[in-house]
Amino acid sequence: MKFVIIIISMVLVNNYPLAQFLGICPFLGVSKDLDSSTGMGIAVTFVMVLATAVTWPIQQLLNKFGIGYLQTVVFILVIAALVQLVEMFMKKSMPALYKSLGIFLPLITTNCAVLGVCITNIDSSYNYIESLVNAFGAGIGFLFAMVVMAGVRTKLVDQSRIPESFRGVPIVLITAAILSLSFMGFNGMFS
């Protein structure tokens, strides 16, 4: 039951791009069409779970030696190396998957949502399984927001007459504002 609550709260209530301002860059930049936003969402979910699986034990190791303050340095290096490794592995052994997901992988290293979820897991003192579930929920929430955003953008933004100053990025931000306003309706689902 606890896992279900964690996942639902990460997808709807604490949605990363729409309620916590994490992962805004890909959320605005890649959500142009449905295909690329789905690909990006799945790739982020994958890397989030993988990064949590690796960084959680590392944090225990750091704590054991009393060097917890090295968290930021160690985590970002581990994530960068991990993403590079996954990319190389995918290119070699799964070329079909690499074609659809691989191009998004280098973008993920500097995605604050991935580092964010790793640090959040430590800060809220989840155990290993809970951390993995939390990372999975955060990834699904990101995917969900990306797909909704892409749907709105292809229908609304590209086919309507927009004031000149608002063309491009500003209208996308307005769309995001309205989306996040509607996501606020989920607030208070869990107290």
Partner: peptide, 27 residues
């Protein structure tokens, strides 16, 4: 959260409006 997106959009639109020709705006 929505206010953040909204204010960001308005400020950026204002910058677009006032710098229309003077600097290269990336849409």
């Amino acid at each position: 959260v929505p206010g953040g997106f909204f204010v960001y959009a308005i400020v950026m639109a204002a910058v677009h409006y006032f710098t229309k020709d003077k600097s290269k705006i990336r849409n």
